[in-house]
């Protein structure tokens, strides 16, 4: 019998196994690949500050508790806003849909929460929402966000994947030095709505605290 023959011929056994398992992947992923890569006309890439915030989101792994995917149920659209559309994610590398909602969905949190709320909340969630089990993220108020890496990320996706960033985003230290003030400007705008003295001091010293980048990112989730 064929299968028994395979059991005596490890090489062909392996080839057969591989063929059988590889096959489904092609059918499951390939047909939708181009379609799913298209942004909506209204989707814009994130700013460098927002990208830095996204990296804080990944570093502190908020995805452990928060999804970013609103399913098409009335109960979800009532709670979080419109159901999510594929094109909205076209610039998200990685995607951050999550698989567990220990906390609420955040895909449109920028619509119904604001900077000062996040500031209070991230410092100590139970102060704002009694009974909250979310950890406090005080360290984000003192850690410095890595905006240079965020910029490098923008450069990379622009050059490799044609993400529509402006001409001022290009490789090299000089271009970055020229761009840096813009990021600080954005950070200042966010910090203006915040109360934390330490944050204001860091911004004044030309540093962007992680919390500022993170809030810029959360506000961009709309």
């Amino acid at each position: 019998m064929f299968f028994h023959w395979l059991e005596k011929n490890p090489f062909f056994f392996a080839v057969m196994t591989f063929a059988v398992i590889a096959f489904a992947g092609l059918i499951e992923i390939v047909p939708n690949f181009t379609e799913a890569a298209r942004p909506l006309t209204t989707t814009t890439p994130r700013t460098v500050l927002e990208l830095a915030g996204k990296n804080v989101y990944i570093k502190d792994n908020c995805i452990a508790c928060h999804s970013q995917l609103i399913r098409p149920f009335k109960s979800e659209t009532d709670r979080y806003g419109n159901y999510s559309l594929s094109g909205e994610y076209a610039f998200d590398r990685p995607f951050l849909w999550g698989s567990k909602r220990t906390g609420p969905d955040l895909h449109r949190v920028g619509n119904y929460r604001t900077t000062d709320w996040h500031e209070n909340h991230m410092k100590n969630p139970p102060d704002i929402v009694p009974g909250s089990i979310m950890p406090s993220y005080k360290h984000q108020f003192t850690n410095v966000a890595d905006i240079e890496t965020a910029y490098a990320e923008a450069v990379t996706v622009k050059n490799v994947f044609n993400v529509p960033y402006g001409d001022d985003i290009k490789a090299g230290r000089k271009a970055w030095e020229a761009y840096r003030p813009k990021v600080l400007e954005d950070a200042k705008k966010v910090a203006a709505d915040m109360k934390d003295e330490g944050v204001k001091k860091m911004i004044a010293n030309g540093k962007v605290p992680e919390i500022v980048a993170l809030i810029a990112y959360l506000n961009s989730l709309k």
């Binding site: 009532d78 806003g81 419109n82 619509n111 119904y112 604001t114 900077t115 000062d116 709320w117």
Partner: peptide, 16 residues
């Protein structure tokens, strides 16, 4: 429209 004042900012709920 939401509201922005001395306490902070209240978001608009027009879509919700």
């Amino acid at each position: 429209n939401g509201k922005k004042g001395i306490i902070g900012t209240m978001p608009s709920f027009k879509t919700m």
